[in-house]
Structures are given as C-alpha cells and as structure tokens.
Design a protein around this nucleic acid. Structure first.
Lengths: 227, 227
DNA sequence: TCACACTTGATTGTCGACAATCGGAGTGGA
DNA sequence: TCCACTCCGATTGTCGACAATCAAGTGTGA
C-alpha cells in the first residue's frame, strides 16, 4: 500500500494524509472548496494543524490556495494531465535507465515476482482494477527506488505526485489496458535483467505514452458524452 | 529577479519567502536548527504563521522536519547535489526539447537579447558572479516557461527547486565557468532558432553535465582542503 | 428598474496561552 | 569509572478566541 496511514505523528500529518486520500479517491470533488472549520471539526482537531496540513497539500499541488479566499481541491483538466504525463515520461524514463545499472539482481528478481502476483490477481478478479492500479504504482515506485536517486524517488514516490494516483482513480474505471500494461512491464523487467538502460528507458517512455494515449481517449469520450 | 518579495499576502507567505532567501543565500547555515519562537519574534509574528511557512519549506525540501524534534536546514551533501543535477538534466532537457517547438520567434529573440545583456555584464564586472547566477537562472527559467508545461515550470521555477539556487550560491564563489556557460547558452538559443528540439535537448544536457562536473570538482577541492 | 453604497454574515488570518514531548544535566548505585 | 535513572528546562504541538478580510444580500436614491 502506498497510502501511508500514520495514525501517529502530529495531527497535521494525519490530516494531510487523510485529506490527500480523500482527494485522490475523489471523495472530495475537484474544485470543491475546503472549509477549515468544518474539516477541523470532522477530524476532531483545531484549525492550526489543519492549516498546516493544507499548506502541505498545497506543496503537493493537490489543492490551490488563494489568500483570504480559501483553498480548493485542484482541478485536473486535460492540459494539466498532459503536462503531468509529459514530466512523468521524462522522470520515469530516467529512473529506468538508472535502475538498469543500479538495481541488484535480487531486486530485479523481486520485481519480476511482483509482476507474477500482479498477473495472478488479474486472472482471478478481472475487473478489480483498483488493486491493479495500486500494484502498478508499486511497480513504478520500485523502479524509482532502484534508481538510487533520492530526489527522483521523492518526486515519483509517496510524497510528491499524488496527482498521479489522482488521475488513476479518475480514469481507472474502465481501464481495459491492464493486459498490455502488464506485458510492457514484463518487457521492462527483461531489459533491466539485461542491464540495458537505454532499452529500459525507451520501453518505459513508450509505456507511459501508451497510458497517456489511453487516458486521453477516455477523456475525449467523457467530454463527448457530457456534451 | 527570481526572488519574489511579496510583502503582501499572508504572514506565512512572507515568512516562507524570507526564510527561503536566508537559506538559499547561506545566511542560515546548512543543518542549522530553526527555533520557532526565535524566528517568530525576529519576523515579528506569531508561531502559527511561522509553522505554516516551515511546512511550506518542507515541501520545497529546503528544510527537514522531525516530529517533536524541530526542523533543520537541509544539508546538501555530494550525493544530494548529484541527484539534483541528474533530475535537472532530465527536466531541463525536456524543457528545451519542448521549447524548440513551443516558443515564439519573439520569445527566442528575447532570450538572445538576455544573453547579450548577460555578456555585457560579464565584460563589465568580470568577478560579479552573483548577477551571473541570477541571470543564468533567468535563462533556464525562460526556457522552462517556453516549454508551455506548467508542471515543468513549477518544478524548475520559483516554487520548487530553490535547492538549485542554493547550490549556486554555495558554489558560485569561484565559478570560472561563466564564459563557456555563456557560449553553451548561445548554442542552445541557436538550436531553438533552428527549431531543432533534439539538438537543443542534447546541448542543454551537456551544459548541465558540465556544470555538475565543475561543481563536483569544486567540492573535491573543498574536501581536500578541509581534510 | 438599475446602479451603488452599506451592512452583515461567514470565513480566513493571527495571536497568546496551555499541554505534551524530548534532550540533557545531575545524581545515585554497582 | 561507568551506567542507568530521574528530574527539569526548553521546545514543539495544540487549542480557543479575537481581528481582518471578503462576499453576498439589502436598502436607497436617481
């Protein structure tokens, strides 16, 4: 699970995680205004920690804040999503290239086993995309870890870039892309096993481009049906 | 100037900017503990806004925070700097590639003029690296803007990645690299004028690799003299 | 009827004080 | 002499209340 639920730590941290979760899962709608007093009461805390949490989320780009006018959940329009996937392609491509030389054989083997479990899960419960999405993010995160670049890990990992998970949730309803995605993951692992960084980067970039293409089409359909 | 000084807005915003400036310029030493009450008094505000500011800086990775143990200025060791420059190479390379197709002729022309002013400045006051560093960051930021990718702009621009400015300050003392850097900037602009994204990316990546190499050697010397 | 200023309500921004927690100095015993 | 325990000061975490600001609704005059 990438969703950390540290019921320990400061209240601000707890609030940040709970809010992040609510936003990512869509429980809090995009563009929705966040009332400090109301949220503070719901979480059973004062407004101080909550405001700190909102600052944190602002840094994560999960909310936008306007002085004296409150904070709102970010809205992911097409352009924003496109920008995100563009950056992601560059960063994850880089992560893959580095991982090809930095990961241990053991780690790559673990990665392969992760895909095995993943495949089994798909066979068992075809529709359960939810867990797929989680597992997929795990896959990507493991590669980010394999890059040994802390900055990259932060950006692609838990802290930053919850936005990614947000798009996933938003678009994981009818993601029929699980099988080709798994296939691509396998290819990437194969490239890692061969220690071929260039190939691994290429494959990862294609993989993400494919994901964006798929999501982009889904948005088109939504807009059509909405119009 | 990239240093925004919004003496308007909330106190927390003001504090965040002042603190960021102090950290980037080294006024607050790396690893230094930040006492909330003391800072609050120095800035003439309560601890509430200051804590919000610290949360903000934490998101920028300018400080690290440990619950119940306070926040400290981040320490830029060699590995961290290396990681930053790695990520920067990927992101700015991408920005360059996009800018080659997205920037208007007018913008590219402006960029060229920026380099003219830059060159003049170098001739006039050879040693004044400070302004060079600012101008250089302006150059890079303009290209990030040219990519038309908001996420990229945020990451490379003012908000995120003040860390970069921090390394600059830390290493801009004896940066004899201004001339070759300017030359490389010119080459990049030339590539943009030719709308050659691939070349622009290649040149930018080399440019950043060169910068890292220079800084890396500088660190080596420092460590030698320290040892 | 429309425009404009005012009032009012709600929400955000800020402060001071209290509670919880941690690190370290000091002391006692093995 | 060294280790462990205790206590205390300092610092962080939290809350409630007050002030400032903005938005909407209302009334008045042209």
């Amino acid at each position: 699970m990438l969703i950390k639920v540290p019921e320990q730590g400061t209240l601000a941290d707890v609030a940040a995680h709970r809010l992040a979760h609510s936003i990512v899962t869509g429980e809090l709608a995009q563009g929705q205004k966040l009332n400090e007093a109301e949220l503070a009461e719901r979480f059973g805390m004062g407004r101080g920690p909550l405001r700190e949490a909102l600052r944190h989320l602002e840094g994560m780009r999960l909310v936008t804040r306007i002085p004296n006018a409150g904070t709102r959940v970010v809205v992911l329009d097409r352009k924003t999503l496109s920008d995100i996937y563009g950056v992601r392609e560059a960063l994850e491509g880089m992560a893959c290239r580095l991982a090809a030389t930095q990961m241990s054989d053991e780690e790559i083997s673990q990665l392969s086993k992760l895909l095995d479990r993943h495949e089994e899960q798909i066979k068992k419960e075809g529709g359960k995309i939810y867990s797929q999405s989680e597992g997929d993010l795990d896959f990507h995160y493991q590669i980010a870890r394999g890059s040994r670049n802390q900055m990259l890990m932060d950006m692609l990992g838990s802290e930053q870039y919850q936005l990614l998970r947000m798009c996933r949730y938003r678009t994981s309803r009818k993601a029929a892309r699980t099988k080709p995605a798994l296939q691509q993951h396998r290819q990437i692992v194969a490239a890692l096993e061969q220690r071929d960084g260039e190939l691994a980067e290429l494959l990862m970039r294609r993989h993400i481009q494919g994901a964006w293409k798929s999501i982009s089409e889904m948005i088109d359909k939504e807009e059509e049906s909405a119009a």
